[in-house]
Design a protein around this nucleic acid. Structure first.
Lengths: 247, 247
DNA sequence: CGCTGTGTTGACAGGTCTCAATATAAGTGG
DNA sequence: CCACTTATATTGAGACCTGTCAACACAGCG
């Protein structure tokens, strides 16, 4: 269990050994699933969430005419299915984009965390807030910018996340996404994605080769995307106090 | 303090007296602010969140050229500024649309909740998840539907929320919003909002008189909006267990 | 080799934006 | 109360962005 990708949580605050152990204890046996498999569909009744150990996965909903809206691309270290905890039926469909490994977490076990590891619960609370901020950024990108900027925003966003997981990650994306899925992500048409990708390429911002996309000019893309730069808080006075209470 | 609009939390689960008291104890003295006042701006350093007692308020960010993206219209009973807890500088600007009354909550006090009222903390966690689901719905609406549907979605959404606060609320909205703000909400232009409002009116879906909008055909609007219908969970086995642990 | 899914291209229609100008309402100071 | 200013709503014409439909190219795969 020592090799769980817990960077996500460490970004917020350093966890104690006990907390890491509690987190690991939550998880069930790892499950391996092939690409294209569905963890759960919108409308399903679900009683567990997941921790993504390896692989990529898309969270989205289907809308009429074979189109969908993809909310988020999940990378290793993400918690999956959490938003649906508040509603009777899953609000999202979770589809594997690559072969994946997940650890299931029963909601009961998750609930106990709140009584037994309050500081860890608070950290999870903050994780969710950050997800919310990310969604707000997506909303801004889709609501108030052109398709070219939206694509740039997506590439930069994914690059930043891969960079956060591994600081040596090169500015190259091997996206396990079709252009149709890219379209579902940024809210345009597959045909239009194709044209705009070509525009990004001829402008010298990216280079393409198969499904591999090289971010030739990251700064240029970032300027084009015009995303707000959020920095994670790490100075949680109230989290420290909390820990002190229990020590 | 007995008149706090706590319906929001009651929607999830019935709170105990002790929990309600703890919630009330978190809050500082009520602050009254006039319309147009700003609770905090994106980029501000903030150390508190708010509980909205009365009035309407918009959460959004400014983007170039005087345009903005509004994430959410907050109604009485909402917690404000929570997403910004995870980042060093506020991710959103909170602007009063009407005169408002808020109760400030220091983050320190909020942190103690996790150790002292774990079940309540879990409920707040779920509230946030629901907010996230709401954002996902907004994203779908803006990303994958036409402006007419987006406007319909907004009206229906606000109506449903007002209805949840007071079941006798008539299908009439007194929106303290300009058409420009409506535009910022649904991601289009003020001019276009005007045209589409007229279209909704001539189609017989709404009627307008000043800033008052009557939802003449709620079902029709809902069909047009094509929003997923989420139902809040109330059968939290793991929440009950939690309470039992402490009893 | 012929499937099937994905990528690419073209022509055209439709939605939305831009840039005005004007009308109406709301607010202000005299 | 009126005259004035300002904010907001409404309208029109044209350009731009994006969607639609259809055809074709290309790759992976049996």
């Amino acid at each position: 269990m020592a090799d769980l990708p817990l960077n996500r949580f460490r970004e917020f605050v350093d966890l104690t050994e006990a907390e890491l152990a509690a987190l690991a204890a939550l998880c069930g046996e790892p499950e391996r699933l092939p690409a294209r498999s569905v963890l759960h569909s919108q409308g399903d009744r679900v009683d567990r969430i997941y921790f993504l150990v390896s692989g990529w996965l898309a969270s989205g909903v289907a809308v009429p005419q074979g189109v969908q809206q993809i909310f988020k691309i999940h990378l290793p270290g993400d918690m999956l299915g959490v938003p649906s905890m508040a509603v009777t039926r899953a609000a999202e469909t979770l589809t594997a984009l690559t072969p994946i490994t997940v650890l299931p977490i029963q909601m009961e076990a998750f609930g106990e965390l709140f009584t037994e590891q309050p500081r860890l619960a608070a950290v999870l609370f903050l994780c969710v807030q950050y997800e919310r901020v990310a969604l707000m950024d997506r909303l801004t990108s889709i609501g108030r910018s052109r398709s070219l900027s939206r694509l740039a925003a997506f590439f930069v966003h994914i690059y930043d996340r891969l960079h956060a997981i591994d600081a040596r990650h090169p500015p190259t994306l091997d996206l396990p996404l079709t252009q149709a899925e890219l379209a579902d992500l940024v809210g345009i048409t597959a045909v239009h994605v194709n044209r705009k990708l070509q525009e990004l390429e001829t402008t010298g911002l990216i280079a393409r080769k198969r499904s591999r996309i090289e971010l030739v000019d990251v700064d240029g893309l970032r300027r084009l995307a015009d995303l707000p730069a959020h920095r994670l808080r790490r100075d949680y006075g109230w989290l420290r106090d909390n820990a002190a209470d229990r020590a």
